[in-house]
Computed example of a mutant assay.
Amino acid sequence: MALSEHEQRLLDQLEQQLHADDPKFAHSMASSTSRSMSTRRIVIGSLVTIAGVAVLLLGIWNQFIPVGVAGFLVMGAGVYYATSKTRLDGAAPNSGKGAKASSSAGGGFLSSLEEKWDERKRDQT
């Protein structure tokens, strides 16, 4: 469903506001994400998960609890590996300072959006 001209203008204004308030965040959202799902990880994780289920069933069939628990852990590790995302750029995760700075910038952005929303509501009535 296409946006009307008015909605498109509002969306453009919001995008410009985002670029002005937090250019780093806007750039990260515009480009492809630095973390993405890998088909290779999904396949390997799925195979490990299947192996974990097999070990779990083997432990249940032999009534040997440690083997069943180990199978469950292998199964969980396979699911975790398959669903976790890889970092493409190899950079280290952000420190606490970066996270605090982005959250404070986000608060300013949201408050300015709320002010503009209230102003538009007042203009319509």
Rank of each mutant, 00 (worst) to 15 (best):
residue 117 W to S: 10
residue 53 V to R: 01
residue 40 R to F: 11
residue 101 A to G: 02
residue 59 G to S: 04
residue 25 F to S: 13
residue 97 K to Y: 11
residue 99 A to C: 07
residue 43 V to I: 14
residue 81 Y to P: 01
residue 102 S to R: 12
residue 1 M to N: 15
residue 50 I to H: 04
residue 71 G to P: 01
residue 114 E to A: 13
residue 78 G to M: 03
residue 32 S to M: 03
residue 11 L to Q: 15
residue 125 T to G: 12
residue 69 V to A: 08
residue 94 N to K: 13
residue 112 S to Y: 03
residue 102 S to Y: 06
residue 115 E to L: 08
residue 100 K to E: 15
residue 26 A to L: 04
residue 4 S to F: 13
residue 80 Y to D: 06
residue 90 G to C: 05
residue 90 G to A: 03
residue 18 L to D: 01
residue 16 Q to R: 12
residue 35 R to N: 14
residue 46 S to Q: 03
residue 1 M to V: 07
residue 109 F to L: 15
residue 18 L to G: 00
residue 23 P to I: 07
residue 77 A to D: 04
residue 80 Y to A: 11
residue 22 D to F: 04
residue 40 R to W: 15
residue 54 A to D: 05
residue 117 W to I: 11
residue 121 K to W: 10
residue 121 K to E: 08
residue 63 Q to L: 03
residue 46 S to D: 03
residue 61 W to E: 12
residue 116 K to G: 06
residue 105 A to F: 02
residue 24 K to Y: 03
residue 108 G to D: 15
residue 113 L to H: 02
residue 50 I to M: 13
residue 98 G to S: 12
residue 33 T to A: 10
residue 79 V to P: 01
residue 45 G to Y: 00
residue 35 R to L: 09
residue 27 H to D: 14
residue 3 L to D: 06
residue 90 G to N: 06
residue 54 A to I: 15
residue 117 W to V: 08
residue 96 G to L: 07
residue 19 H to C: 09
residue 72 F to P: 00
residue 65 I to Y: 03
residue 63 Q to G: 01
residue 75 M to L: 15
residue 12 D to F: 08
residue 26 A to H: 07
residue 120 R to V: 06
residue 19 H to M: 10
residue 44 I to L: 13
residue 57 L to N: 10
residue 85 K to L: 15
residue 121 K to F: 01
residue 113 L to C: 09
residue 106 G to V: 06
residue 67 V to Q: 09
residue 4 S to W: 08
residue 119 E to G: 04
residue 62 N to T: 11
residue 88 L to F: 04
residue 17 Q to A: 11
residue 95 S to E: 11
residue 50 I to F: 11
residue 98 G to V: 05
residue 51 A to D: 00
residue 3 L to T: 03
residue 41 R to I: 00
residue 120 R to S: 10
residue 123 D to W: 08
residue 120 R to A: 15
residue 121 K to S: 07
residue 70 A to R: 01
residue 38 S to R: 02
residue 8 Q to K: 12
residue 12 D to T: 06
residue 86 T to H: 09
residue 58 L to A: 14
residue 69 V to H: 09
residue 23 P to G: 09
residue 105 A to P: 00
residue 16 Q to L: 12
residue 49 T to V: 07
residue 36 S to R: 04
residue 74 V to E: 11
residue 95 S to Q: 00
residue 8 Q to D: 07
residue 98 G to N: 05
residue 17 Q to F: 07
residue 80 Y to T: 09
residue 1 M to F: 13
residue 22 D to W: 00
residue 53 V to G: 06
residue 60 I to D: 12
residue 76 G to Y: 07
residue 43 V to K: 07
residue 93 P to K: 04
residue 91 A to L: 08
residue 22 D to G: 05
residue 41 R to G: 05
residue 93 P to I: 00
residue 13 Q to I: 08
residue 7 E to M: 06
residue 108 G to T: 14
residue 30 A to V: 01
residue 99 A to F: 12
residue 48 V to F: 09
residue 56 L to Y: 10
residue 54 A to W: 14
residue 32 S to A: 04
residue 89 D to S: 06
residue 115 E to C: 02
residue 77 A to K: 01
residue 36 S to D: 05
residue 123 D to G: 08
residue 52 G to C: 02
residue 78 G to P: 02
residue 55 V to H: 05
residue 46 S to K: 01
residue 98 G to F: 12
residue 13 Q to T: 05
residue 55 V to D: 05
residue 96 G to E: 10
residue 35 R to A: 14
residue 68 G to Y: 01
residue 28 S to H: 07
residue 3 L to R: 13
residue 66 P to H: 03
residue 19 H to L: 09
residue 81 Y to S: 03
